[in-house]
């Protein structure tokens, strides 16, 4: 497997190169301090894997990803997980490494890259929607199983994702998570609430009860909610 490293910091490139040298079947064929050089190289060479720093001045990793027509596998590297969420929406993003990168974690990412079978965006998207997605909490990407989500509530700049067992506070919007959640299970019943319809235990005129929480239902959303229910 051949790879390139794209990172504006020399120390980061050398660290990744050092880690790559520990993997027998992985060869570094290029190191680039800016994304434009890397794009030129990718246009002329076939590459299996890119280690990409997502936070680079002028032309960042997300911009870089958007320019790729036939992208190879990508492992993101950064010291700030904030940007990774957006990039994780792409099919070819294999993993995300938070700096400073340790050998053990690096090896796991390489194993993932090795196992990763290319799939179409559609298939990957569908499978992600059905199973789980990642949220960024305190510099960690935490996997949340979609079906375990009961309620998503918007509070200011944050959303509270309430699952069967845990609650997560994530810096995001209801609209963004709504795009990730399957329509078959979830419904936005209020401007501040998305609910998992299967988790409803009780309904009154303009409220539903889930996990002992009373959730308001907008008048305009009530007909859609009623349609979803399996009424006798």
């Amino acid at each position: 497997m051949n790879c390139i490293i794209v990172d504006d910091e020399q120390i980061a490139r050398v660290i990744i190169k050092t880690l790559c040298d520990e993997i027998k079947f992985l060869g570094v064929v290029g190191e680039f301090s800016d994304a434009m050089q890397a794009i030129k190289f990718l246009n002329a060479n076939e590459i299996d894997l890119i280690f990409l720093d997502i936070h680079m001045p002028d032309f960042n990793g997300v911009d870089f990803i958007k320019t790729l027509k036939n992208p190879p596998k990508i492992i993101l590297t950064t010291s700030d997980s904030q940007f990774a969420i957006e990039a994780f929406e792409y099919d070819f993003i294999i993993d995300y490494l938070l700096k400073p990168i340790g050998l053990e974690r690096f090896q796991k990412a390489i194993l993932k890259a090795q196992k990763h079978e290319p799939s179409t965006n559609e298939v990957r998207f569908e499978s992600e929607i059905k199973n789980d997605f990642y949220v960024n909490i305190d510099r960690r990407l935490i996997k949340i199983n979609v079906e375990s989500i009961c309620i998503v509530e918007a509070k200011g700049d944050y959303i509270h994702i309430k699952t069967e067992e845990k609650n997560y506070v994530v810096h995001s919007t209801l609209r963004r998570i709504e795009e990730k959640l399957p329509d078959s299970l979830f419904l936005r019943v209020h401007r501040s609430f998305i609910i998992n319809v299967k988790k409803i235990v009780d309904i009154e005129d303009n409220t539903v009860v889930i996990k002992k929480e009373v959730i308001p239902v907008s008048r305009s959303k009530r007909p859609e909610l009623m349609k979803r229910l399996d009424l006798l």
Partner: peptide
């Protein structure tokens, strides 16, 4: 902000975990 971000990496490489948090907040 970009410069702090780059320096932040050096801070964590040198094992300054608490200072890294400060740098992160500053960024």
């Amino acid at each position: 902000e970009e410069n702090v971000h780059r320096l932040k990496h050096k801070i964590i490489i040198l094992g300054l975990e608490e200072n890294y948090k400060i740098a992160n907040k500053f960024e």
